[in-house]
Design a protein around this nucleic acid. Structure first.
Length: 582
RNA sequence: GGUCCGGUAGUUCAACUGGUUAGAGCACCUGCCUGUCACGCAGGAAGUUGCGAGUUCGAGUCUCGUCCGGACCGCCA
């Protein structure tokens, strides 16, 4: 028996066709006489019926042995059902079986996935991932992933981009995340590093004149995992020569438009709003604002300078967030938000209730009439509201109120997962001060072009140097990061110097790159959207793991293969490695 | 590395302040059932309450340790 159709394609107008279907028994219903199967493959589900009035006793006996997840093939005739099942695409028809072959039996699965999603905990789903992927939702997610990568390849290829592979065994470079290392057998004591991104290679390809490059590239970073972070993940890596940031903006906007259009039938409005980093931090408290809702942070530092209230008077920054309709929060509920604020670094969470145009409770008695007037003016609320204040160092205020803003966005139901709001965050600072190491680090990376007007500040005023870098943000998720690159050796050396890299370090780590740049490096710019995060937002999934076929668990192990695992002494000896036992 | 939440039948969960024989849905097994479509009905089997100590007359429940999973902080150019 060889299948003639899949389990998702037969319809009313196929009536009376002789067909053969193969698939898994999704659900069997034995009525004693009549016997029904829901037969499933990745295309869909089709009902099969065995009628003892029409087929031999042998076949009925064989069919009645089948259990869920048995693999079977069935010969039969397409019939229109007396009553259609509206829950199935094939619900108007069924296969009136005249023969069955059990291709393979299945032991009882550890969980069910009858309603589209597995009904087990994630740990178990990952251990039996091959079963979990049979579920409707996971199958749909993997199909969408394929559509997105195909749309990406088609779009970029049409625009003249070449897909070029770069090495996964490469050189460890300083800064950034921790590298995954691979011992080099022929070079005892030396290691390859898995790439955190193909950054250096794609810039070298620009020197090669490849002009427009892209790659669906696997990247590796040895840091703790999160819902939106895996140790290995996939980027749509893009670089182009003789272009500026505006080219990258419109290219990426076109790419996102095509991806949503081709894979989901959604027309995303372009161009995307551009928000300078400083504005984003001021109004949203974060560098990846969720634009699906307002709830902007309001700065009242100017008026609180003269406040009688010590907490406000002495703070570097005072901002508030006015949450409409939340003025009836209980003391206990407010405590819950205060705990959250403390978790984010706040010392406390001052609040005041705005009820019928008047302030009540909380820090009401510390506010002057002038303060209240200003707050009402800035708050821009219709009706009553709960107002939360942050008063601390600017970075802490932003962290706390930015976090609360996102939390309220969620709790107030303002974050519709079907609402896709893109924006660009631009003009990031070039450097950020690393207190622990007492030095300046590159905020994006050290090949990022500073703004021309800021170049002479690099040496003495690094904190005020802005760069030609940009992030693409979708619904509060950082989807992509990119920049115009430095193609001028002098500027590059200035940056290296500012980052306190010695000549020896520069030569050792980047000598090959600087050498390449002596042979005519074109001006170039690029970007790298994260494929997994894009799919996470598109599918509305809670974690990136739901759009990856075989993800690692949060602790970075693989419940399916049990990797990582110890290796034999022989393997270690060959690699000249001795292991410290804990 | 830190804070918090969780681990009870194959599975998802329940078990009030410590107190009888640890329960239910789904799955599984047996029987009945000719239009079900999450079929139905009747019955059955199924437990080292993650692991190890401790407190107690008595621990799923309280304490300590440990392992595993998750969320957040740190970290992630």
């Amino acid at each position: 028996m060889k299948r003639t159709h899949n389990c998702g394609e037969l319809r009313k107008n196929d009536e009376n066709k002789n067909v053969t279907l193969s698939g898994w028994v999704h659900k069997y219903r034995n009525l004693g006489g009549l016997l029904f199967f829901d037969l499933r493959d990745r295309y869909g589900i089709t009902q099969v019926i065995f009628d003892p009035a029409k087929v031999s006793q042998d076949i009925i006996e064989l069919a009645s042995k089948c259990r869920n997840e048995f693999v079977v093939s069935i010969d039969g005739v397409v019939k229109v059902k007396p009553d259609a099942n509206r829950n199935l695409a094939t619900g108007e028809i069924e296969i009136d079986a005249n023969n069955i072959k059990i291709e393979n039996e299945s032991i009882t699965p550890p969980f069910n996935f009858l309603k589209g999603r597995s009904d087990a905990k994630e740990e178990l789903r990952l251990e039996y991932r091959y079963l979990d992927l049979r579920s409707e939702v996971m199958t749909r997610n993997l199909i969408l992933r394929h559509k997105v990568t195909m749309a990406t390849r088609n779009f970029l290829s049409e625009k003249g981009f070449l897909e070029i592979e770069t090495p996964t065994f490469t050189k460890s470079t300083p800064e950034g995340a921790r590298d995954y290392l691979v011992p080099a057998r022929l070079f005892p004591g030396s290691f390859y590093a898995l790439p955190q991104s193909p950054q250096i290679f794609k810039q070298l390809l620009m020197v090669s004149g490849m002009d427009k490059y892209f790659q669906i590239a696997r990247c590796y970073r040895d840091e703790d995992a999160r819902g939106d972070r895996q140790p290995e993940f996939t980027q749509i890596d893009i670089e182009a020569s003789f272009v500026d940031e505006n080219y990258i903006f419109s290219l990426t906007e076109g790419l996102m438009h095509q991806i949503f259009s081709e894979s989901m039938g959604i027309e995303i409005p372009v161009p995307f709003e551009r928000i300078p980093y400083s504005v984003s931090m001021e109004e949203y408290g974060v560098d990846k604002p969720d634009l699906r809702f307002g709830l902007k942070l309001k700065n009242i530092t100017d008026i609180t300078r003269n406040s009688e209230f010590g907490v406000f008077k002495n703070a570097e920054c005072v901002k508030f967030i006015a949450v409409e309709g939340k003025e009836d929060l209980s003391r206990k509920q407010i405590g819950k938000y205060e705990d959250y604020a403390k978790h984010l670094g706040a010392k406390g969470l001052a609040f005041v209730k705005l009820v019928d145009g008047k302030f009540e409770a909380g820090i009401e008695k510390f506010l002057t009439d002038d303060d209240k007037r200003t707050i009402i003016e800035l708050a821009e609320v219709n009706g009553n509201a709960m107002i939360f204040f942050g008063a601390d160092r600017t970075s802490t205020v932003n962290k706390v109120l930015g976090g609360l803003r996102n939390r309220f966005g969620n709790e107030l139901g303002l974050t519709d997962p079907k609402d896709f709001k893109f924006c660009w965050v631009t003009d990031f600072p070039m450097f950020e001060y690393n207190e622990e190491a007492d030095r300046w680090d590159a905020m994006h990376h050290m090949f990022t072009m500073p703004k021309e007007e800021d170049i002479d500040k690099i040496e003495n005023d690094p904190g005020n140097v802005l760069s030609k870098s940009y992030d693409l943000v979708l619904n509060g998720v950082e989807l992509a990061s990119g920049s115009v690159r430095i193609h001028d050796r002098d500027i590059q050396e200035k940056i290296f110097k500012r980052l306190d890299l010695t000549n020896e370090e520069i030569e050792d780590k980047f000598g090959f790159m600087l050498k390449a740049f002596k042979y005519g490096a074109p001006p170039h710019a690029g970007i790298a959207p994260g494929l997994d995060r894009l799919l996470q937002v598109m599918t509305g999934e809670e974690t990136i793991r739901e759009v990856i076929a075989f993800p690692k668990a949060k602790s970075l192990n693989c419940p399916l293969t049990k990797a990582p695992s110890e290796v034999s002494q022989d393997q270690l000896d060959e690699l000249n490695i001795s292991v410290k036992k804990k």
